[in-house]
């Protein structure tokens, strides 16, 4: 064994390494496929897909606006309103979380920032629709529950992004303020906040884009917005109604992404 030259050994170990990974990946996939039985597909699948496609290309235009307040335009506006207000509340709530979770170099604060990061991870992992259901219990079904769900759930991501921008910010201005005799709150107001605020705003807009998507499905559990009629239309198989709602969501999301993207470019 010892006679093997170095290059031979490394060659051999490299080959084994490949084999090792290959076997692991193969095992994972075999396990994965056993979990999903593709035999359970309904016979009507093809037919339903065709009906959906037909519905999407023949949308129910009458639903767009009928003045009842339960039409597409009203409910999409409500969805955007949920996302907007939820993101706004969340952005405010996220600031203290961000300072809690930001690691600012001093070792004695590591426990603080680690615990903050952990809390943010917990919030991020807590499913948004469960939050929505919980808030429905507290304030009843409707878009207010959706607003609350968005406000709390978004803290997980916004708090993380905010804390990262605090960690990466230029500490120069804060140092300058401190060196001129400013106290903590003066440093915060004159140096820290003006330095990080544009980035905070940009992240908030980005999160708003995501919130519009999630607000459009919160209705599926009863938390207001366009999700409720969408689920209803799918369950009653009114595909032309599904078609117009899908169209509405696609246009809304595209438009919001465009506007928010333009604003974000102007910010940074």
């Amino acid at each position: 064994m010892k006679q093997l030259t170095v290059s031979q050994t490394s060659l051999r170990s490299k080959r084994y390494k490949w084999l090792f990974w290959l076997v692991i990946i193969a095992v994972i996939y075999i396990w994965g496929i056993t979990g999903v039985q593709f035999t359970g597909i309904k016979d009507s699948a093809g037919e339903v897909s065709r009906s959906i496609a037909y519905g999407i290309f023949h949308p129910d235009w009458k639903y767009v606006y009928d003045g009842s307040g339960e039409d597409l335009v009203s409910l999409i506006l409500q969805t955007i309103a949920m996302a907007f207000l939820g993101t706004f509340i969340s952005a405010i709530l996220s600031v203290p979380f961000a300072f809690w979770a930001a690691r600012t170099g001093k070792p004695r604060f590591h426990i603080r920032s680690t615990s903050g990061k952990l809390v943010l991870t917990l919030i991020r992992t807590f499913p948004e629709i469960v939050l929505a259901i919980m808030f429905i219990k507290a304030v009843g079904p409707g878009s207010f529950a959706g607003v609350l769900a968005v406000s709390i759930h978004s803290i997980g991501m916004l708090g993380k992004l905010f804390s990262e921008s605090i960690e990466n910010m230029d500490f120069g201005p804060s140092e300058a303020l401190m060196s001129s005799g400013g106290n903590r709150s003066q440093t915060l107001v004159f140096a820290t906040l003006p330095t990080v605020l544009p980035e905070f705003l940009s992240y908030t807009l980005y999160r708003f884009e995501i919130a519009v998507r999630s607000a459009s499905i919160l209705g599926m559990v009863g938390a207001g917005g366009i999700g409720t009629p969408l689920l209803f239309a799918i369950q009653t198989r009114t595909w032309s109604r599904v078609g117009i709602i899908l169209l509405g969501i696609i246009i809304t999301v595209t438009l919001i992404d465009f506007i928010s993207g333009t604003l974000r470019k102007r910010l940074v």
Binding site: A45, V48, S216, I217, M220, L230, I234, V242, L246, I249
Partner: peptide, 15 residues
């Protein structure tokens, strides 16, 4: 642009 839960509702209807 399509949210995940919406896709799920559609595919439950299909398959």
């Amino acid at each position: 642009t399509l949210p995940d839960l919406m896709l799920a509702a559609l595919f439950v209807a299909i398959v």
